[in-house]
Simulated scan of single mutants.
Amino acid sequence: MFVKICGATTAQEVRAVAEAGADLIGLWHGVPGGHANLPAGRLAGLAAEARATGRLRSVLVTFGSDAAALARTAAGAGTDWIQLHGYQRPALVRALRAELPEWVRIVKVLHVRDGSCPEASLIAAYERAGTDLFLLDAATPDGRVGSTGHTLDDRTVAALADRMTRSFLLAGGLRHANRDRFGATLEHPGFLGIDVDSAARGDAGLLDGARTADLVRAWKTP
C-alpha cells in the first residue's frame, strides 16, 4: 500500500513525511488560490528534496490543462507522477502521454459528489488515452474539489473501482482512525493506497511527521 501525503511547501515537511514512512509527496503547481500552490522553481527544489530522501516519489498535482506546459514543468522539476485534478478531458491525457517519458505516471482524479461521479462515463476513455491510475476524491455539495475533508462512501468507491482496469488511490477525509470504514475498498484488487492532506497537518498547518506516522501505521498495518 502506498501512502501519499499532499501539499508540502517546505523542505522540512518533505523530510518529515519521508522519515514517517510515507511513499509519495504531492507538490501543487497550477492550483490557483491553493494553500500549497508552488511556483515552478520551488516545485523543482522540493522534488529534489524528495529524491534526496531515497524514499519519496514526487507527484505534480495540478489543475492545469496545457499538455506541453505541464510536460515542460514536470521535466524541469523531475517529478515522478502527474496528478490531474479538476475536470480535464481524456484528450489532455492523450496529449500529455505523448509528451512525457514512459516512466512518468499519469494520475487522473475522479470526483464524487453526493454519491455520483460525473466522470464515470469517461473512465474507459481516460484509460485508452494513457491514464496509469486513478484517484477517487470527494467533491463538496457546492462543487469544491481537492483537500475538502469530505469522506467517500465505501460502497461507492468499490462500485467505481469495478469499472476500472487501472489501480486507484483513495482520498477524501481519511484519518488514522477511519480505516475500518473502507472494508470493501481495502479488499478491492485495484486498491493501491491513500492520499491525505488535512489529517497529516499539525497545529501550525504544516505537514507533521508524527501525524503522518500515525496514518502510515494505521493504514499499512491491519
Results as ranks from 00 to 15, higher is better:
Asp80Lys: 05
Arg217Trp: 02
Asp203Val: 10
Arg51Asp: 07
Ile5Cys: 04
Gly33Phe: 13
Gly54Pro: 00
Leu170Ile: 14
Ala159Val: 05
Leu84Met: 14
Gly209Cys: 03
Pro141Gln: 08
Ala138Arg: 13
Pro189Gly: 08
Ala47Val: 13
Ser65Tyr: 07
Arg72Gly: 05
Gln83Cys: 10
Val112Ser: 11
Ala40His: 00
Pro189Val: 13
Arg181Ala: 15
Arg144Phe: 11
His85Thr: 11
His150Ile: 05
Gly41Lys: 02
Ala129Tyr: 13
Gly183Leu: 11
Ile106Thr: 02
Leu27Tyr: 08
Gly34Met: 02
Gly78Lys: 08
Gly26His: 12
Asp154Asn: 11
Val112Ala: 13
Glu187Trp: 01
Ala68Arg: 15
Met1Ser: 06
Trp219Ala: 01
Val145Ala: 03
Arg144Pro: 02
Ile25Ala: 01
Asp197Pro: 01
Leu110His: 12
Leu192Asn: 02
Ala47His: 07
Leu186Met: 09
Ile82Gly: 02
Phe168Tyr: 06
Ala11Ser: 07
Arg72Glu: 15
Asp137Ile: 10
Ser116Asn: 08
His150Asn: 11
Thr53Gly: 09
Arg217Val: 04
Ala74Leu: 13
Leu192Lys: 06
Arg128Phe: 00
Ala67Glu: 12
His29Asn: 14
Pro90Glu: 09
Ala48Ser: 03
Leu133Thr: 06
Ala40Val: 13
Gly115Tyr: 05
Arg201Leu: 05
Gly209Pro: 04
Leu186His: 03
Ser65Leu: 01
Leu152Asp: 05
Ser58Tyr: 00
Ser167Cys: 13
Arg51Cys: 05
Gly7Trp: 03
Tyr126Phe: 15
Phe63Leu: 11
Ala52Met: 10
Asp66Ala: 07
Arg201Tyr: 12
Trp81Gly: 02
Lys108Val: 14
Ala95His: 08
Ala91Tyr: 07
Leu136Ser: 07
Ala71Val: 04
Leu43Ala: 08
Met1Gln: 05
Val61Asn: 02
Leu192Arg: 13
Ala75Phe: 08
Arg51Met: 02
Asn37Glu: 15
Phe2His: 11
Gln88Ala: 14
Leu136Tyr: 08
Leu56Tyr: 11
Ala68Glu: 15
Gly45Ser: 06
Arg89Lys: 15
His176Asn: 09
Ala18Lys: 00
Arg94Pro: 01
Cys117Ala: 14
Ala95Thr: 02
Val93Lys: 09
Gly64Arg: 09
Pro101Arg: 15
Tyr87Arg: 15
Asp197Lys: 06
Ile194Met: 04
Ile82Gln: 04
Gly202Asp: 08
Lys220Tyr: 01
Glu13Gly: 05
Ala36Asp: 00
Arg42Gln: 12
Glu49Gly: 06
Asp154Gly: 14
His35Arg: 14
Thr148Met: 05
Val61Glu: 05
Val61His: 04
Pro141His: 12
Ala204Cys: 08
Gly7Ile: 04
Arg55Pro: 01
Asp153Thr: 08
